[in-house]
Nucleic acid binder design. Structure first.
Lengths: 203, 203
DNA sequence: AGTGAAACGGAGAGAGGTTCCGCATGCCAA
DNA sequence: TTGGCATGCGGAACCTCTCTCCGTTTCACT
């Protein structure tokens, strides 16, 4: 390991960074992230690093100075999507809405974003399928919201007891599959899932 | 295209082949399939072709003479699993059992096999997620059984009308996710899915 | 045994991710 | 303003993995 002080926070937005970055580095990081977001959204996470570098008009080396691996870059590129979904959820439906209705709105939003952004879709699936690795901050936030939503629903007696918040993320795998195989049908799928989640006395 | 007569049926068991294969070729094909099945089951589909060739004690070239791509080989290796599941289903529960109960047995069996065979699990997910490409024969058979099972359940009024057999395969994506993240919890997941599938008058 | 077709092995082409290092550039102090 | 230098940059090179190609070997049939 030649570098004595590796960049730890390269994938996060970091409010208080230990050492300020140079202006050109900051600019390049933004260019890379934009290029990545565009390409991954349009064509999925299989787009090559060379291509991202070309669209960002930087060398591949620059990509790896800002993100340790391609996977981290894909993850970072979809952070904004998690952010959008969280913002929507927190402003629209967290407090005012009945839990099952809120869950429906949230799942619908996730499906809509997955339909628009193939890179995000694969991050959701991989992150749920792949067992190890640290969760990105906003993804963790979203999972936390789901957990508390499920808790609330269970306390109110409208969601069955034998389920956890983490289950919901697993259910989005199937959602993702439907979004990309038969666009449009996913509203039906959400209804099926919600009917399954209801507590028996609500049925 | 140099080869005038490419091997069409390389992934199937072919009962009536147009031209007989040499004995050594037949033997090597079996060795390769065995090696592939073992390695993919143990460690997943990311195992390299070199490694499969090494375990089968053949050269990589031989792998590609029997299977056009790695993907085809993974698919072929999991055909046996689809076969096992189909046999189980046809002998145990297709005719004699009530549709929802049969569906439960079938989903349970799929989960059990996925838990044992990581390669099979990824074939189920990829095949469901990936939109294009021809389905392998036994996979298609399994999907057909699911379709007729759903039809039967709908005719009997125990399965909701707004669902198709293909939806079930999508639901197995989430199943797969749970099988590999929290082994054991998938029985709970199956109950949730089944409750969602029930027609409303049954609840 | 002899012959031709079928099958084999494995080097290497090609593609994609990742690293490395000499050069360029922004930043700060004098 | 300029000189010093840490920081950042580009892209050739490297590694690994899939897949192809072709000289050699093996089988099957006479």
């Amino acid at each position: 390991m030649p570098t004595p002080m590796p960049v730890q926070q390269s994938t996060s937005a970091h409010t208080t960074s230990p050492r300020r970055r140079r202006a050109d580095a900051e600019r390049n990081r933004a260019r890379v992230l934009n290029a990545a977001r565009e390409l991954f959204a349009e064509r999925g996470a299989h787009v090559s690093m060379d291509e991202v570098a070309r669209r960002a008009e930087v060398g591949v080396g620059t990509l790896y100075r800002h993100f340790p691996t391609k996977e981290a870059m894909v993850e970072a590129a979809s952070q904004q999507r998690f952010g959008e979904i969280l913002t929507y959820y927190r402003t629209i439906c967290r407090d005012s809405t009945e839990p099952l209705e809120a869950l429906k709105l949230l799942l619908t939003r996730i499906a809509e974003v997955e339909a628009r952004d193939r890179g995000f879709a694969s991050v959701v699936v991989e992150g749920t399928l792949g067992s190890e690795g640290p969760r990105s901050p906003l993804r963790a936030d979203l999972e936390a919201e789901l957990v508390s939503l499920v808790d609330k629903g269970q306390a109110a007696g409208v969601i069955r007891q034998d389920i956890t918040g983490a289950d919901i993320l697993s259910l989005t795998c199937g959602l993702n599959s439907i979004v990309h195989r038969r666009s449009g049908d996913w509203r039906r799928y959400i209804n099926i899932v919600l009917d399954g989640l209801r507590s028996s006395r609500e049925r």
